[in-house]
Computed example of a mutant assay.
Amino acid sequence: MVSHKRRKELLKMVIECEKLTIKQLSVLLDASPATVRRDIDWLAERSLLVKMKGGAQNPSLRMQHPLSGETFQNALQCHATSKRAIARQAASMCTDGETIIINGGTTTFMMADFLADRRMTVLTNSFLMAQKLQVSSENEIFIPGGRVYREQNVILSPFDNDITQSHYASKMFMSVQGLSTLGLMESDPLLIQAEQRLINQAEELVVLADSSKFTRKAGLILCGLERVSCVITDTDVSETAVNILEQHGIKVITVQANEERAHGYNSSLNRQYTMDVPEFGRLTPAH
């Protein structure tokens, strides 16, 4: 097996099995322990897996992925179990042959673990997402040109007519800093610039937001709720927040975060509510 195919298989196995020893990988790949060690070193240098004594493990599970920038690293560790369950559900909504867009958030980054078997076209402004998908999958990857902002983990173009303007996507999967009755919220104007360009190229907008995002405030509005097709969140989300989203015609999918750890799979639960409330975080009793 040639080296790049072997490394893709190795990474896929580690993602699926969480952790594997060099001996196990040698048998699975029909390769010598020395070859496996070199492949682990190569993948670890590119932050695609975590090297451990006698083997390798999936970086997303322990949240020790040596990412560029403290902001992204810290956010990756926060609500990690919920984010991973949400990312798994989002990936299950993808089908081979689709063109999708994935923005540079921590929850969306975890989708890469579940897209290894897909055959899609993926446009992303996350250089870490692009690198991981390039090595671990057969998806066709596109990234916009521009400057890499390490803290935000995004690539931003200073030009209005960058590559994103030439792409159409059936879905865009997006992480956000917060949600409110006004819409999706971000605090960094650099992210607003990059993500608004991507949103304009997608037919459906799917937002990945753990329950903490519904009480988090940010200073800038990315887009209104009327642009959102679906929100995937965890079961700790309040009934108030779900009701408001559904009143705006948004499909809400909730996932059980603790089942992600216990069973490696979670089923989505569609929830319906009829309470009429003015905004997230302020409860109005049902009559």
Rank of each mutant, 00 (worst) to 15 (best):
T164Q: 04
D96V: 01
M52C: 13
D30R: 05
S92G: 09
Q165R: 10
D160C: 08
F142A: 14
R147C: 11
M129C: 15
V135C: 10
S157P: 01
C94A: 08
I155W: 01
Q73A: 14
M63I: 14
S170K: 12
A91N: 11
C78A: 13
S47N: 15
Y168K: 14
L133Q: 03
T81W: 11
S47D: 15
R147I: 14
V135T: 10
V27T: 14
T108M: 02
L133M: 07
N161V: 10
R37S: 05
D30P: 05
L29W: 01
S26N: 04
F142C: 11
Q73C: 10
F142V: 12
S136C: 05
P158H: 02
F72L: 08
S136A: 11
F72W: 05
Q165N: 06
T124W: 01
G97W: 05
I100A: 05
S26W: 07
P59A: 00
V148R: 00
T35M: 06
T95Y: 14
P144S: 05
A112H: 09
R88I: 14
G55Y: 10
N58D: 01
E138G: 11
L156F: 13
K53Q: 15
Y168T: 08
T108W: 02
K83W: 07
I86V: 08
G146H: 02
L128D: 14
N74Q: 09
G55W: 10
K171E: 06
I100N: 06
L123D: 07
T35P: 07
K132D: 01
Q152L: 14
S126F: 02
I163W: 10
R37P: 00
Q131E: 14
T108C: 07
G69V: 02
S166R: 09
A85W: 01
R62Y: 13
N161P: 02
S82G: 15
A90G: 07
Q57H: 08
N153P: 08
E98I: 03
S32V: 07
T124N: 02
A31Q: 03
G97E: 06
I141W: 00
T107K: 06
S157I: 11
Q64T: 13
L76H: 10
S157L: 14
A169E: 02
W42R: 12
I86S: 06
M63N: 14
M93G: 06
I141L: 03
K53A: 13
I163V: 14
A85L: 04
S136E: 05
R88N: 15
L28F: 09
L28D: 07
R84E: 13
Q165E: 12
K53C: 11
T106L: 00
V135E: 11
Q57C: 12
L156G: 12
L48V: 03
I40V: 07
G54F: 08
I100P: 12
M52P: 03
T107H: 06
N74V: 08
N125A: 04
L29V: 03
R46A: 01
